[in-house]
Amino acid sequence: MSVRQSLLAILSEGSQYGYQLRHEFEVRTGRTWPINIGQVYTTLNRLVRDGLVEEAERGEDGSVNYRLTYSGREEVERWWGTPVDRQAPNRDEVAIKVALAATAPGVDAFAVIHRQKAETLRVLQGYTKEKRSLPDPVQGDALARQLVLDHLIFVAEAEARWLDLVEQRLRAR
C-alpha cells in the first residue's frame, strides 16, 4: 500500500520513468526501504490498470515515461488528506512472541524478554550512532534519513519501555 501511494505522490510532482521513480522513492525516504525495479514496474502496471497512471511517452529504447491521470491526482489528494489507518494493528513478532512466552509452559519468559531488550537496545544504539554521524545542520537527502531514523528510534524506544513494563507485570503476579 505505502509503495503504491508513495509512487503516486512522487508522480504528482511530474512525470517520471520507472528507474527515476525508484531512485526518488529511495532517496526521499532516507534509503530505509529499498525496492527492486521489478516491484516498481509491477506497481506501475497495476496503477495503469486502475486508471490512476498513464503512459506520457515512450523513449526510443522502449522505456516508458509515466504520469498521473486525473483520478490519480485525486487519489494523491485523498492520501494526503486522510490519516493512515491504524485500526488494524500490525502483526508484530515481538509482541506475539512475548505474549506467548508469558503463558507458555517451560519457557523462561524473563530470559526471552531480556534477550529481546538487549537486541532492541543494540539496534537503538546503531540508529543513534548513525544519527550522530549525519551532517550538522542536516540538509538535503540527509533530512529524510534523519526523520526516518527518528521514527525508528521512537519505535525501538517504545518497544524497550514496553518490555520493561511486561517484566514488571510478570514479576508482580
Partner: peptide, 28 residues
C-alpha cells in the same frame, strides 16, 4: 529512557542491586 541510553557506548542494567547480564551485543 532507552533513547538516551542509546547515546552511550555501553548500557548496563541493574535489578535488585545487581548488574544483570546483558547480551554481548549491547556494547557498541
Amino acid at each position: 529512557d532507552a533513547q538516551h541510553a542509546a547515546w552511550a557506548d555501553r548500557v548496563v542494567f541493574l535489578r535488585d542491586g545487581k548488574m544483570v547480564e546483558s547480551a554481548a551485543g549491547s556494547r557498541i
